[in-house]
Design a protein around this nucleic acid. Sequence first.
DNA 1: CTGATACAGTGACTTATATCACTGGTAAAA
DNA 2: TTTTACCAGTGATATAAGTCACTGTATCAG
Lengths: 211, 211
Amino acid sequence: MVFAESIQKKFPGFETALTEQMELDAKFRQIPAGTELIRPGQFIRSTMLVLDGLVKVYREDGEGNEFFMYYLKPGDGCALSMTCMVGQETSNIAAKTVQDSEIIMVPLEKMDAWMNQYKSWYHFVVKTYRDRFEELLQTLDSVAFRNMDERLEFYLKRHYKTLGSKIIPITHQEIAQELNSSREVISRLLKKMAERGKVKLNRYNIEILDL
Amino acid sequence: MVFAESIQKKFPGFETALTEQMELDAKFRQIPAGTELIRPGQFIRSTMLVLDGLVKVYREDGEGNEFFMYYLKPGDGCALSMTCMVGQETSNIAAKTVQDSEIIMVPLEKMDAWMNQYKSWYHFVVKTYRDRFEELLQTLDSVAFRNMDERLEFYLKRHYKTLGSKIIPITHQEIAQELNSSREVISRLLKKMAERGKVKLNRYNIEILDL
DNA sequence: CTGATACAGTGACTTATATCACTGGTAAAA
DNA sequence: TTTTACCAGTGATATAAGTCACTGTATCAG
């Protein structure tokens, strides 16, 4: 029951019966950083829980533009793999590991069945929906109401919180992609932030000083 | 059982046992057009189903800007009143009737209890989450990837589909607000669309010709 | 060491959108 | 009727952001 134990560590709310059931029915996968977990338009047959590592969820339109939505940390579940199960290809969502990760894959039938059998699973699913919805709303807010400089700050803060480190290893190009902007714009805005003492710019990473 | 019957008409999936239970535990309210159902930051104690009419759900930031999210039609449920129940005031969401409406209010405890008791309720809630999530993603898409002209088209199409009428009774000012733009911009873009034969502009309303 | 490659900085310019200032028209209120 | 308020149209201008073209500079492969 090594597997069940490590689940319980990251998902403290789960009943023992549930974690044991998961040991039987779910798949446990080790996935290296940079792997695409969900490709846009893909048919999804199982839902995903993050046991360890970090997964980025983002949106892609047809023309190669992408747009950062949120991160999934250990203990998080993917609301999308719960909703998109019907195979509606309208949702062009992509997910990628940004760190080496350990993922639990739960088949959709089980996910459905457990809703009645395990109260903790039900609460987890509802909480997942709620949390993702909330994060999505915050993302929407920042695009709808804020300028690029504010969005950039918001983006960096989010990364800081998620990574728990003041050093954010990311290039200007990558930020530009995730905010659907262009590298030059991001470079210039970052420079302004650096002048105001908010960040320190290094090659390959950005250091948060005061946000 | 007049109430239960009218529920069944708009929510064909619901079991009879459920609709009868709703007759006992839910409140039925007639609400005139233009009424605010949810004020930003408000604490929510019950979830909302739309029996008749039309409800607009939108986002408000602190500075009087608003932003259209989606409509709730008869047969729809409000995912937000399901998620925001915890009373997190971060989500500044507002909902307003745009037509005279009939709303069913389900207390949150019941909504929770019914999940286990009625399979059709469970499916309804999950479907509601899924649908709202999807709509929210589409909205996000249009802000993130599209220019104002495309967003305007998308907005008009959505209204056309929701209202089922080619005549959309709305002012330029109102559109500007919901897209978080300005009246002049909307006027100019509408004019261009009119020149291309896509719409016909009238005072107080816009007629869809070819979208 | 040498080239190749990716990251970053920057000036010049374009474009989309926002803002300001004003006009005229319609409808309802006084 | 006159007045007022709201809707819509439009030119001029400002600003944010995107695009183009170029430079410098680390890092890595050969």
